[in-house]
Amino acid sequence: MAQHVVPPSTYVKVFGGLTILMILTVVMAFFNLGVLNPVVALTIAILKALLIVLFFMNVKYSSKLTMIFVACGFFWLLIMFFLIMPDYISREWLTPAIPW
């Protein structure tokens, strides 16, 4: 719960991890990985966000309830993305069949 005191050494380690990930994401951007570029960038961003949420924001030491709500927030975001995109991906599919 909120009373859990995380030692500064953990914070410093997490900060080290975040710095390494940040350098990695900048460096990787200069390599041509094709479609993998955004995938790598987003994976690193998600890892960084996880580190911040779990340690800086104490979620690793909080109740299940907190974890559920945090997960819920991100899950709803995915709902929005996954249901908006099909429209844009498939909108052109039928166009050639229309005679005018």
């Binding site: 249901l83 498939s90 039928l94």
Partner: peptide, 11 residues
């Protein structure tokens, strides 16, 4: 609304 018909079917 010009939303894709396929998306419409899912919805």
């Amino acid at each position: 609304s010009t939303q894709s018909t396929y998306a419409g079917m899912v919805f």
